[in-house]
């Protein structure tokens, strides 16, 4: 039996399993905390910092990322105190300056009432990527190939394929594209070929021998077949025709 603890979120008492993270507990009870770099299938990382909340333990109050803060007995959490909102607003202002043309960020900024960006236009950049590393983590933890990684550090840090060339280990599964919160990873299937431009890769798509639909990259199917020791004709037909 796992130990249960009781905590307070926004004035209401809840009980939760010890060791779960504040974000998860809040979500289970329908309390909204904004996030960008969180995904249920991937370990939390605390990169986007939007999920910050104010926690009080004893006499000490501080700001923490709820996605990485384990619940404890008697913890008092505020998800939208003035201090949290002030910090979240500044975060969005910073993200907005970095991704000045990204619709996701613009939408979030509007949601938090940012009419006039805090930083003047000369500091604006046109990135889509917020360097949350979700694509890198998905590739490592979910897919298991680690075709890409975060390279450099500080302000020049970004997800890139090794040696900045074609990502050799990539299997074209597109997980990075599906998890990217800001649409920075672009994927396109055209003329039977899948392109993921950010990693400089292109993959031929497998044609279903029955309906003729091009349903998945050949490289990905080979990877799955090898991993599970499946017969070589296992993926001849698409899941719909099976």
């Amino acid at each position: 039996m796992s130990e249960s603890v009781s905590l307070t979120i926004n004035g209401n008492k809840y009980s939760a399993v010890k060791g779960t993270y504040v974000l998860q507990v809040a979500r289970d009870h329908g309390i909204h905390i904004p996030t960008l770099c969180d995904h249920e299938a991937i370990e939390p990382y605390g990169a986007c910092r939007l999920c910050i909340v104010e926690v009080t333990r004893g006499a000490r109050t501080r700001i923490v990322t709820s996605c990485l803060y384990p619940v404890e007995e008697g913890l008092v959490v505020q998800t939208d105190s003035p201090r949290v909102m002030k910090n979240r607003k500044m975060l969005l202002n910073l993200l907005l300056a970095r991704c000045s043309e990204n619709h996701v960020i613009q939408g979030l900024a509007r949601e938090y009432g940012i009419e006039q960006p805090a930083f003047s236009q000369e500091y604006w950049e046109k990135h889509d990527c917020i360097v949350c590393g979700l694509c890198v983590r998905a590739c490592e933890q979910v897919v298991g190939v680690s075709a890409i990684s975060l390279v450099n550090r500080g302000i020049s840090k970004e997800p890139k394929p090794p040696f900045l060339e074609k990502a050799q280990d990539c299997i074209g599964c597109g997980s990075c594209y599906y998890v990217c919160p800001t649409g920075a990873v672009k994927l396109e299937d055209k003329n039977g070929v899948r392109h993921i431009y950010k990693w400089k890769v292109a993959f031929r798509l497998k044609k279903c021998s029955k309906c003729g639909i091009q349903w998945a990259p050949e490289a990905q199917l080979t990877y799955i077949r090898k991993k599970w020791n499946l017969p070589s004709d296992f993926f001849e037909i698409c899941p719909n025709c099976r």
């Binding site: 990169a47 910050i52 990322t65 500044m90």
Partner: peptide
């Protein structure tokens, strides 16, 4: 520099102290 920069620097500094990883 603009005169609003001083306040912005103060805000940014406090923000960084509060919520840095």
């Amino acid at each position: 520099g603009q005169e609003s920069d001083i306040q912005l620097l103060k805000d940014l500094s406090e923000h960084l102290q509060d919520s840095a990883l």
